[in-house]
Design a protein around this nucleic acid. Structure first.
Lengths: 339, 339
DNA sequence: TAAGATTATGAGAGCGCTCTCAAACTCTTG
DNA sequence: CAAGAGTTTGAGAGCGCTCTCATAATCTTA
């Protein structure tokens, strides 16, 4: 099917290119009859303006980039990202933006592709999910003045200048640890993660909860893991030697790995060791035992990130916005609170 | 940072816009010294051609779309899609294409967005994952002559005209069912799916295996599910009444749901009922018991789809290509073959 | 070394839009 | 109903590339 141009639409409707352009872009001061006639032609022909021409003339592409730095690639299978992507895709569709996806599997891939992204004008803005503290990428997009919103708070040193959407990790961890304390557990371990702000915040919440109830912080009860099931399994094996009564895992995947490790050592969850996770992934509810966990609004996080970005690109120079979403504790069997 | 233009690069290098363009597009007939000088300037300045201008002048955008029709949205969290997306993203990065993502959550979203996609010239080609038989979308992109590759074979009626990449579902199911038969099981049920060609092919393989060993096909041992864990659970509950000795699940998620259902009814896997899945998801290996399943090369599927698409866009009118990838049976504990 | 063939470079048009500016048209209101 | 104000429309330039065509530079070969 031949693609039409503005000129041709104008011809059919008996007006000039300019007028058709005005109709498309919702400009005022067009006679209602004319607007209607043009709109009809557009609808009937299924005309869509050529996006390259549009973007060249207006220097905005209506394309957003969704960036996941190289470190994340292995974790990409996590349903977390699926939800974030769905949310951003939905927000883009609703607002006539197109989401482009940038996953970097190696540093050189990141290097090469990121230069193309920032310097080619292909993209109007970026949503970046950075779960690692340091990102060369961020400074590059700042250099080129590309609006962006980060998912997950950046390190404190750069927080002020960067717009982000995050969940209240500290409060969530506080909730989780407090829950375990209230159930009477005293030796409460943590399966923590390193080098990411979410992990740092969850750690802070865990410590605060213990401190607020007058429990000592036993560093030997804190094991470092990555965010994976396998990582949780390995970390829990180490932790088992310290004989914790309960454990707060910084993610559901870690918690699931921990449960497997506890089982493999012949112990029972929650009777011997109680477990609380973080995320409330779909699997958490159907796990065995069902996982007590901190539910974070993942879809909402992605949605708000995209909407914030749209807002920023509209009203360009404005203070960075920080959005922090509340979380809630979902109590199931793994913490020993319900049978 | 100010973005440079071809003209400016030319000025710095002491040549015309045209020459710089030639260097960028690897045209022959440039003096090596000149080529070198221009290339140096480009490298030093980090210059990237403006993609809108390029795409307007050349009428190709170097953007590929990755489309997942509305039906799939709930299943999108399946790690299958994460892998496919990663593979396509990688192939795009390697070939200077940008992958754009189109997920449709409702039919009206699909309607509106798809018109924009096909008619705006934003996209040079599409990879579509259609696990549903019928797609209005496909006929739309055919109308506009947009090259595309489908992941998963289309229905036979349209197979000849459509390029696709698929795994050998029939052979995989044949392998799975034959494995169960060889282990001595006779009443072998199937947790099947409806309205998708992958399911139809797996069903065919299952039936063929039974037929080849002279076993009767007992339709009452075949239950219809969707591809989810919950679907598998529900379907297995029904199937339990027929007392199968073994069951072939058309996906790992279904198999996991089935195992949960079998457990909940007080029976053991594999001692009372053996289970075989399909996919070999990461979870399959660490499931309890570890799942015997048919491994399909998911990443490879995505990679080949993207590469086929690149190939098609280069050499436009050519016969549709059909790529079918082999699968293999991975034997673990759930089928009762190993303890 | 002159003429023709070949190679290297630049000038110019044009891709399909947006946006400014000027012209034409429609209201007011005295 | 003429003059001024406001509203509606069209013409034209320009966004930064690619691609064709003409010209300039270089290489052949007699």
């Amino acid at each position: 099917m031949k693609r039409l141009t503005l000129e041709e639409i104008g011809q059919i409707a008996g007006v000039s290119r300019s007028t058709v352009s005005r109709v498309i872009n919702d400009h005022p001061n067009i006679r209602p009859a004319v607007r209607q006639r043009v709109a009809d032609v557009i609808r009937e022909t299924g005309y869509q303006p050529n996006s390259a021409a549009r973007s060249l003339a207006s220097s905005q592409s209506r394309v957003f980039g969704l960036v996941m730095p190289s470190i994340l690639q292995s974790a990409f299978a996590d349903p977390y990202y699926a939800l974030v992507i769905q949310a951003i895709s939905h927000a883009c569709n609703q607002n006539d933006y197109t989401p482009a996806l940038f996953l970097f599997q190696t540093l050189e891939e990141e290097e090469k592709t990121s230069q193309r992204i920032v310097a080619s004008g292909l993209i109007d803005g970026l949503v970046i999910t950075a779960d690692t503290i340091e990102s060369a990428f961020v400074s590059k997009i700042q250099q080129y003045d590309i609006p962006f919103v980060q998912i997950g708070r950046p390190p404190r040193s750069s927080m002020a200048d960067i717009s982000y959407v995050d969940v209240d990790n500290e409060a969530g961890a506080y909730l989780a640890a407090s829950h375990l304390i209230q159930l009477g557990y005293r030796r409460i371990g943590q399966l923590a993660t390193a080098h990411n702000t979410a992990g740092a915040d969850r750690d802070a919440g865990y410590r605060q909860a213990l401190a607020d109830r007058g429990l000592p912080i036993d560093e030997s009860l804190i094991e470092i893991s990555d965010f994976s099931e396998a990582g949780g399994y390995a970390a829990m094996r180490n932790l088992l030697e310290r004989q914790p009564e309960a454990v707060f895992a910084q993610s559901d995947a870690i918690a699931l790995g921990a449960i497997r490790a506890i089982r493999d050592s012949g112990l029972n969850v929650p009777d011997d060791i109680a477990v609380v996770g973080f995320d409330d992934m779909p699997l958490a509810a159907s796990a065995d035992p069902p996982l007590t966990t901190v539910r974070q609004p993942i879809y909402r996080t992605g949605l708000l990130a995209a909407e914030a970005l749209i807002d920023i690109t509209r009203t360009s120079p404005m203070p960075a916005r920080h959005i922090v979403l509340p979380v809630e504790l979902v109590i199931r069997a793994s913490s020993g609170a319900v049978s």
